[in-house]
Design a protein around this nucleic acid. Structure first.
Lengths: 206, 206
DNA sequence: TCCATTTACTACACAACTGTAGCATTCTGG
DNA sequence: CCAGAATGCTACAGTTGTGTAGTAAATGGA
């Protein structure tokens, strides 16, 4: 009957598990990007993916594990990008050069994959408990890498732990500025501002 | 009947409107501090205050206006404290002195009223739309004040807009560190780290 | 071709929260 | 001391989201 035809939802394409999981993570990422971590729910993800909730439950136990998997995937991508963009040689001792090298690379990284970075930069304060712990763990790993960079660039007499926190905070804020208004906050402008800040003493203090 | 006596909830003390509103804002603040902005609801606030939901609806139209009023109150307190702690003389031109003056004052400010500052520092990304706009407006006002300080301290050739964003980001992160672990991140340590960072060129660049 | 398996959908029960209507209690002024 | 105004409580209906059991469709191998 046409009544039945109208009522019954057309079946979504059948997809093997692994692919379905990826598809659902993509949907979740879109929802997060559009509505923030608040708007995320099993229901919203299912709608976004064009399937019904039981399909989602077939792929993930609940919202927590799903978001966990999402963050896991995006953080992995992000860390690859990030460590690719960060300088390698810690023993240089030339802060300005180091910044002029890393600045544009980081900037490009943001523009290449803004969705991932919005999701990560905004996960900061919010996000369901268990997720935050994992984010924090990775964040700490990044901070340690930066702490080493700081020590390498500015010498051992600096308080590298505190400064690494400052650098991370600054980078995250710059990231948000770039994503919000790339034309206003160009790679060159941000880079030069930082260089000017501490470029006045180019040598390393040992 | 004892049945009725057991069932019927004892009446909460009757309180004039103005006082009730304050009491509810206090309750809301406690909830936010305990469970974050996620855990906040009319229901949770009512429970925390020891009254029933209709009482809350008598004082505020809904959760949005209530949180708005809360942020309004706390931000007002916070801005008073903040502008009290920030240096006044913009024309000094001595960054190190400026920081050594402001650092401990800001540190003390945090310890004096940690609940307020936790609520504000964590409101960053989250919070119901309308609230965030107001928070952003105040934040921008603070940033402009800091932009003036930066110009005053480092001279006009610096990119004060960008640097003010960096300074704000750093201050907020330091605030979080202090609140999380005051013994580890003392006023002196944070202050000296910043002074060391740019204190190497004490003069103003004009 | 046809049946067993896999995958998706429908429907239901449950939980947390919102907002409101109507009743109960307390308090206050005459 | 006793109405009636002010204030609080109970109860209900509506909404949104969760998680699951049972049913219907699609798909691949015999």
């Amino acid at each position: 009957m046409s009544d039945q035809a109208r009522k019954r939802r057309p079946y979504a394409a059948r997809v093997p598990m692994a692919e379905r999981r990826e598809q659902l993570l993509d949907a979740a990422l879109q929802v997060v990007d559009r509505d923030g971590y608040d708007g995320v729910s099993i229901d919203a993800i299912a709608k976004q993916a064009g399937v019904t909730r039981p399909v989602v439950y077939g792929a993930f136990d609940s919202l927590g594990p799903l978001l966990m998997a999402l963050l896991e995937r995006q953080q992995q991508r992000a860390l690859m990008q990030l460590f690719g963009a960060l300088p390698q040689d810690l023993e240089d001792g030339d802060p300005a050069g180091l910044i002029r090298q890393a600045g544009p690379a980081l900037h490009q990284m943001l523009l290449d994959d803004p969705v991932t970075w919005r999701a990560i930069l905004q996960s900061a304060t919010h996000a369901p408990e268990a997720v935050r712990e994992r984010v924090e763990a990775d964040r700490e790993q990044v901070r340690l890498a930066i702490e080493r960079l700081v020590t390498g660039a500015l010498g051992r007499r600096t308080d590298a732990e505190v400064l690494s926190h400052a650098v991370i905070a600054m980078l995250e804020r710059f990231g948000q500025l770039v994503i919000a208004d790339p034309e206003r906050f160009t790679a060159e402008r941000l880079t030069e501002a930082v260089v000017a800040l501490l470029g006045r003493a180019p040598g390393r203090v040992t």
